[in-house]
């Protein structure tokens, strides 16, 4: 089964002219960065557009993938760049809320209002209000689980600069979510 081929072998096949084999990589990775793209762009549909664009770009420039065995990491760099491009070009679309009425305020009655989904919606909304570089850093570190050196490689930024982005991002997020920081979803009753 070609679907079990390692990434490096699939890349080799595609570069040799078998472009249909690229579908293996699409199938393998189209959902891998969904959560990251959704959190960066703000909506699942926009995330799908970004992932689609990233995969097409990966195909066009596949011969620039220097380490085909590490195709996933290379693709993630493209997704990350495409998310930033999307956010920069499509800033006007950010005026559309993730969900209508999702305001970033502390719930009046946590026992009734504060579900995990509600918390998630508020945090996403707050993230969308952060500067792109801070949002990107927070997502890579705390959602994707990358280490600082891994982030530095993906973003082509020094570790000290990343630490500063993370610090500013955390502080901004705290400011926007001040009322939620004291709230425990495991024990929502005040």
């Amino acid at each position: 089964m070609t679907d079990s081929l390692p990434d490096a072998e699939v890349v080799r096949l595609v570069l040799a002219g078998d472009r249909e084999s690229f579908a293996i990589l699409v199938e393998r990775y189209q959902h891998a960065f969904a959560a990251y793209a959704i959190n960066m762009t703000g909506t699942p549909d926009d995330a799908a557009d970004v992932i689609q664009e990233s995969l097409v770009r990966a195909f066009r420039f596949l011969n620039r993938c220097q380490d085909p065995a590490n195709f996933k990491a290379w693709l993630f760099r493209i997704v990350s760049n495409q998310c930033k491009t999307y956010v920069t070009r499509g800033a006007r679309r950010r005026t559309l809320p993730l969900e209508a009425g999702a305001e970033v305020t502390a719930p009046d009655d946590p026992a009734h209002e504060a579900s995990v989904a509600d918390l998630q919606r508020r945090v996403r909304r707050a993230l969308l209000d952060l500067p792109t570089d801070q949002r990107e850093a927070l997502l890579l570190k705390y959602v994707e689980g990358l280490s600082l050196p891994e982030m530095a490689e993906v973003l082509n930024v020094s570790v000290p600069a990343l630490k500063m982005r993370l610090l500013r991002g955390r502080e901004n997020l705290r400011d926007k979510l001040e009322g939620l920081l004291a709230w425990d979803p495991q024990n929502p009753v005040i």
Partner: peptide, 21 residues
């Protein structure tokens, strides 16, 4: 707070395979 995002949708709302290919 930040960990709540981990529970976000792990899949895109649609497959992009057809459009990409």
């Amino acid at each position: 707070i930040i960990g709540s995002l981990d529970r976000g949708p792990a899949k895109l709302p649609r497959s992009v395979r057809g459009a990409v290919m």
